[in-house]
Nucleic acid binder design. Structure first.
Length: 217
DNA sequence: AAACCATTCAACCGCCCGGGG
DNA sequence: TCCCCGGGCGGTTGAATGGTT
């Protein structure tokens, strides 16, 4: 196994390493990732621990194949947001940005016949400037029902599986400052005083799949 | 069975940002 | 204002796996 700087291990995680990391999080909670190596003796850097938890070990993560509904949602969101994987993943319950990114690159981009984009971070997304894209505020519960086994109601806009700040889950309407609202083209007024956000359905309808040419499987 | 090629996806890397001192 | 640190993000890599010859 390769060793990085400070003797940290790299590469695939072993079951033993997973167990150590999960034990630590159970005891101390998430955060302060760089402390884990000191506290537990785990030969992994903080960044690697964080990634392992977020992308694999977190109980809120859904493993397994993507459903057609998820594919459809990702395609629409990608059309709307571009390669903003964390934003997209935040609206696909149980999926991480890494999962979504990999799934897009290995399956969906081929389905759609999309050439791989080489966009840099600083480049604006396909349809929205960066900050504005982040402020697209969509009550996802109007689009995606929580799992039937969940006790969370459709109105429970802060439904997140493990109660953490993980990106996965159901998000409510994010608060915006007045200035941000005014600058955001997706916000509009329906009368003299009220600002209204379009629903995700509205946005996705606007960026309909009809714009795509499917090349079959 | 073996060699080769293609695909998948976990993990890493570099960069950026925000908060605290 | 600057620096450091923790954390987040998107792009890329490479080991593992599956398929083909």
């Amino acid at each position: 196994m390769e060793r990085g700087e400070k003797g940290y291990r790299k590469g695939l995680w072993t079951e033993e390493e997973d167990r150590i990391l999960m034990d630590y999080i159970r005891l101390h909670g998430k955060g302060r990732w760089n402390r884990i190596a000191k506290v537990t003796g785990l030969k992994r850097c903080g960044k690697s621990c964080r990634l392992r938890w977020i992308n694999y070990l977190s109980p809120s993560i859904k493993h397994g194949d993507f459903s057609e509904e998820e594919d459809d949602l990702i395609i629409r969101l990608h059309n709307l947001l571009g390669n903003r994987w964390s934003l997209i993943a935040g609206r696909v319950p149980g999926r991480t940005d890494n999962q979504v990114k990999n799934h897009w690159n290995t399956n969906l981009s081929k389905k759609l016949g999309v050439k791989k984009q080489r966009t840099k971070l600083k480049a604006p997304s396909q349809t929205l400037p960066t900050k504005e894209a982040e402020n697209v505020s969509v009550p996802v519960d109007t689009f995606f029902e929580p799992p039937s086994t969940s006790s969370a109601s459709a109105n429970d806009q802060t439904y997140i599986n493990d109660g953490s700040q993980d990106k996965v889950g159901y998000f409510g309407v994010e608060e915006l400052t007045v200035n941000e609202e005014r600058e955001n083209p997706f916000w509009f007024t329906n009368d003299e005083s009220n600002l209204c956000a379009p629903t995700l359905s509205d946005l996705l309808d606007q960026y309909s799949l009809d714009n795509f040419v499917w090349h079959g499987l």
